[in-house]
Nucleic acid binder design. Sequence first.
DNA 1: CTGAAAGCGCTTACAG
DNA 2: CTGAAAGCGCTTACAG
Lengths: 334, 334
Amino acid sequence: MDSSKITIEDIARELNISKTTVSRAISGKGRVSSETRERVRSFIELHHYRPSAIAKSLAQSKTFNIAFTMPGKYGFIDMPFFQKCMWGISSIASESDYDVLLCMMEEGDISSLKRLIHNHKVDGVIIGRTYENDAAERFLLAEKVPFVTVGSSANPDAIQVDNDHYQACKELTSVLLLKGMKQLSLIGGSTKYIVNANRLNGFMDAHRTMGKQYLPELIKTEVDDPAELEAAVEQFVALGSDCIVCMDDFVCNQVLLKLNKMQVQIPKQIRIASFYNSAMLENNRPSITSLQFDAVEAGIRSCEILMRRMDGKKVSSKTWLGYNVKLNESTSVV
Amino acid sequence: MDSSKITIEDIARELNISKTTVSRAISGKGRVSSETRERVRSFIELHHYRPSAIAKSLAQSKTFNIAFTMPGKYGFIDMPFFQKCMWGISSIASESDYDVLLCMMEEGDISSLKRLIHNHKVDGVIIGRTYENDAAERFLLAEKVPFVTVGSSANPDAIQVDNDHYQACKELTSVLLLKGMKQLSLIGGSTKYIVNANRLNGFMDAHRTMGKQYLPELIKTEVDDPAELEAAVEQFVALGSDCIVCMDDFVCNQVLLKLNKMQVQIPKQIRIASFYNSAMLENNRPSITSLQFDAVEAGIRSCEILMRRMDGKKVSSKTWLGYNVKLNESTSVV
DNA sequence: CTGAAAGCGCTTACAG
DNA sequence: CTGAAAGCGCTTACAG
């Protein structure tokens, strides 16, 4: 018998029992005598029978697929994050015999997501990258498709899994202050992004909590072009800042290039820390002190939550993930 | 009528025609009067009917899914390649209303692939990373599942899409020689890997073709630990090599670090080129001369070929992809 | 050009 | 504990 074509009906016929019983013996739902169960089990093993996921899907009106959305053509930044995240998602999904379907889309263009949903190919989705006023989220909400976002969303109806950037930044800043640095400077992009606003607050509150002052001239947010960034770095150095804290790894990378150009040595002449880790900084010399967020965990948690949500269970709308402060060469006080 | 629950039967009833006709009007297969077709079309549009991909799958015994395999937990190297490749694959797949299912696996552990195939969740697979004596390939061959590999495979039965590394390396080497470099050195890993053997041959044949000599002392393959690599670099410098050619970007990265440590300036004191491009080198200062391979194209071609193969069409067992020689600062002859 | 009917391979109330 | 039968929502020979 060709193993790839065995059906539940074949088993029933061979074993002289009904399809119903076979189905029950396999799924474990409903009572089946242990003797019958064993006969089915051994037949299946012998003939390498594998149930058709498609038929099961149709019968149960479930696809056993979830989608994972991520940037496609552009935004090749921080790809390791997505890979690790996917790994976490896959592991959890497969435990429930679910598979993950790729959905690549750019900001604004959610056509691939629409196709997936309209074709009823998935039971739920994990949004790997959120945007402000996210079209994908609005669409999924309207279509009543369960989803969870990795990263914060402004949408109060979205179920979110995120790192506690505020706490993490506050802690890293405190550690730097404890190490004796006195003139921390901060540089980063737009604080209209929630995550950046949180980072700024963490930075400031750490100072407050420890009874330290920060110099307003040393805080430079809303930086969005290289020239501006270079000017800021020059100013920090001129004002005698002893450590530059970067709001993200992208900014950090640029700061490093600028300091290199200026021939300023790290950590001898100035120290550097980043509020975000990434592959970009991983191989840097000196190694960069940064906050470590675990992308695999983000994947795991978001998938677990989505699974529960798809099961109709209540889930909390916001899940905080852990973080680590990783001290490296770039902030060593010689 | 709840749009998410409309079936072909509802349409048939509302329009007073048979399910058969509705199905034909939608699929375009079989003759349907243009009037009927139009009635169906407008009804569908009005009520936002979307056929169930699952039901279609079961009826046609096709899943409309393909799998893309890539490394999971380990091997976080060169992730942008996979992302670009996936983007290419997705675009082509979606043209035929196919979706791509993620299959993350480590060398040797093909359990996730097995699950996918046994559950009949895909019609074909694209192997994103090939290994020697690839377990995944052997499995798919045995299961008679159509697949294509991105990158070369030693398996003669595998349908492969690959870059012509030999030609590419030969060309880059020739260009370097034409620029006047006289003592090219070559460094890389094991030549048991087909791709490395090809690279070595390209390097040597370029010399031969141009009537130049290469010094055996300047060719160092089978390098597999950092100490060995550092020693080799020191030797190259001591022997007066004017350009180090690296077999891949990983080796190149290490060579750069070593030269940096040695305070040897690029390209002033020595030049550098890589036989492979990657994000790791993209942001380097100085920018690195390297061979450019288009990962999006690799995805596109492999998916096109897989689609044709799944259609039962004959496809050539080996497809060569293009490449570009990208000259950058690291080989400028001042 | 159109339909009735069987089929894809499972699941699941319902009845026993 | 077990079965007959209907159902999941499409497709497709076959017949007209």
